[in-house]
Every structure is written in structure tokens, then in C-alpha cells.
Design a protein around this nucleic acid. Structure first.
Length: 301
DNA sequence: ACGCATACCTGAGTGC
DNA sequence: TGCACTCAGGTATGCG
């Protein structure tokens, strides 16, 4: 699933392939893919034709391509990959992908850009940008851990001021952005902190440690082209990353912890999963592992 | 104001 | 063979 490193891989691919190219026509093949563009699919296509794409930018998991401004305030083409979105640079003659949602054709007749998204949680929109060049629908997203202006001390302070579980806070994109389920579990494993730790009882040192660990694991993942488990995440050339071979905790239930050898466990978390080492990541006082309903039944029977 | 559950989606996998 | 169900999970929204 695309988190910060995967989105950055895509951004770099876009930078190499679409910067300074003029759009000729945009075809919207699925209305849900443009639901965040309030004025509708027709408006999006009309307003993009003839515009020139500038250098792609990113904050957290949001990606945007600034457009040459005609007059007044700037605009950008904002893309969020959601859970299964892909941006592919394709030969215009290549057959349509099964889940092709938006096609962007260029005036130079060269490779086109395709937004492909199986689960349609992602989407594209043409949005005005604020004073700092950030699209208005991205302004509520906090700076991410690869942003030179991100302030670890300030984030650690805000994190400790919250009354929630540590992993919930790490996934809160308004606190610090770019972290999803995979990198949250990996960062917690590296910092040797349990996902259910209450944020208001976390030391300043532990808060800084988990942020540092998250940055470190994302940088390493970026170096390997991102994480992927299947064909759902790919770069603009349709290739997968390799970081899944380096995961210590995420998806590793029943496998030995690379640090101590204890078997990694999976816990239900927000209707999903958290993976951790029960030895290295001690749960907070009073926390009890939830027993799955099916296991309870078989014990009873 | 804030924390939290929920809706939105499709395809793969599993159990009966 | 097929049906019902579960799981994957990022974000916006609305509730208490």
C-alpha cells in the first residue's frame, strides 16, 4: 500500500517524465476517481487541456503537480493514490488497464499518464494553491518526516499532549504525515515501543525515538524503491519495490523477531492489524491481548 | 474540541 | 462449483 516512500518513488518518476509537458486532453473514465473535484469530470477535463505541468511536489501521501498559471492564484493537479492507486507512464498505443480511471494525453504525442486504481479510494482533482504553493485540500496535512522544515521536537510535544494510543497518533496525518500501517509497525518495532502505549505517558526521549525510527525506515524503504506485496503498488514504469524483504514486524505473524527470535504476534487494531514482538515491545500496564471470537468459540466447544 | 467509529471500494482468499 | 464471509487500509465525515 502506498505510504510516503512509495508516493515519493512515484513523484520522482513523474518528475522525470511529465515536467514541463503540455496536456492535450484528459479523459475521465470513472466518476469516483474525480469525486474530490467538486465541479465535476467535464470541468476537470476542460480546465486541464492546454495546461503545462510543472515539477511534481509531495507532502505525506499527497502528490500534486503545479500548473502554469494563466492569471491570479496558482492551481495544481492533486493526486492521492489511496490504497491501490497507480500513476503509469504509458505508450498511448498500450491497451487500457482493467482499472484505468483517468487518462492524461500530452500535446507532444509522447507517452501518456494513466491513473489506474482498483479500489477507487484514490483520486485526482484540480485545486487552487495557497500562498505557500500547497493545494488547499492538502493544507490540513502536517509536514512529513522527510520535509526539511518538519520539527521533531514540536511533533514530539504535540504527540505527548494527545490522549490516545501511540500508533493512532502516528497514523494521524495532521500530526505528522506519510506514516501508514506498514511503517507505523516498523517504526514501533525499531523504537521497541508497543502500539497501545498511551501518548500522554510517553517520555520525550521515546517520542523522539519513534519519530527518528520512522524517518530511518522510510529512508531505507525509499532506497529500495518502496515496499510492495503485490502488483498494487508500482512505480510509473509498473515495477514493484523490494523493501518488503526487509520488514521486521509488519505481516510477519509467527515469524521470529530479527532482534530476539520471539515470534511476532498480530493484534486487532482499528478493524485491522498491528504486528509486534511481544518481547521487545512490552505492552503498557493493564493492556490485554484481545482473543479473536473464533478462538473463543473453539475453546468453549 | 477532540477522540473515535464508520463508510467508501474491489479482489483474493477461506470455509462450508 | 459457488456462495457467504473476511481481510486489506487512507481519508472524510459525523457522532458523542
Amino acid at each position: 500500500m502506498p505510504e510516503l516512500p512509495e508516493v515519493e518513488v512515484v513523484r520522482r518518476g513523474l518528475e522525470a517524465h511529465v515536467t514541463d509537458r503540455e496536456l492535450a486532453a484528459v479523459d475521465v473514465l470513472h466518476a469516483r476517481a474525480v469525486r474530490r473535484h467538486v465541479a465535476g469530470a467535464g470541468d476537470l477535463s476542460d480546465r486541464l487541456a492546454g495546461r503545462v505541468l510543472r515539477r511534481p511536489q509531495r507532502r505525506g501521501k499527497y502528490l500534486w503537480v503545479p500548473l502554469d498559471s494563466l492569471e491570479g492564484p496558482g492551481e495544481a493537479l492533486v493526486v492521492h493514490l489511496g490504497m491501490s492507486g497507480q500513476l503509469l507512464v504509458q505508450d498511448p498505443a498500450a491497451p487500457d488497464e482493467r482499472h484505468l480511471r483517468v487518462r492524461l494525453r500530452f500535446a507532444d504525442g509522447g507517452p501518456e499518464l494513466r491513473f489506474v486504481d482498483q479500489r477507487t479510494f484514490g483520486g485526482v482533482a484540480l485545486v487552487p494553491t495557497g500562498a505557500d504553493g500547497v493545494p488547499v485540500i492538502v493544507e490540513h496535512i502536517a509536514r512529513d518526516l522527510l520535509d526539511p522544515l518538519e520539527d521533531d521536537a514540536a511533533v514530539a510535544r504535540a504527540l505527548r499532549a494527545k490522549r490516545t494510543q501511540l500508533k493512532r497518533a502516528l497514523l494521524d496525518q495532521t500530526l505528522v504525515s506519510g506514516i501508514g500501517n506498514i511503517y507505523a509497525d516498523e517504526a514501533l518495532w525499531r523504537a521497541q515501543l508497543h502500539w497501545a502505549r498511551p501518548t500522554d505517558r510517553l517520555s520525550r526521549g521515546d517520542a523522539l525515538a519513534v519519530l527518528g525510527a520512522a524517518r530511518e525506515v522510510m529512508v531505507e524503504a525509499l532506497d529500495q524503491g518502496g515496499t510492495s506485496f503485490d502488483a498494487l503498488y508500482v512505480n510509473v514504469n509498473g515495477q514493484s519495490g523490494y523493501f518488503d524483504r526487509s520488514l521486521a514486524a509488519y505481516g510477519q505473524e509467527g515469524r521470529p523477531c530479527p532482534r530476539c527470535g520471539t515470534l511476532v504476534v498480530r493484534d486487532p487494531f482499528m478493524g485491522r492489524s498491528s504486528f509486534s514482538c511481544p518481547h521487545c515491545q512490552r505492552p503498557p500496564r493493564g493492556w490485554r491481548r484481545e482473543v479473536p471470537a473464533r478462538a473463543r468459540e473453539s475453546v468453549r466447544g
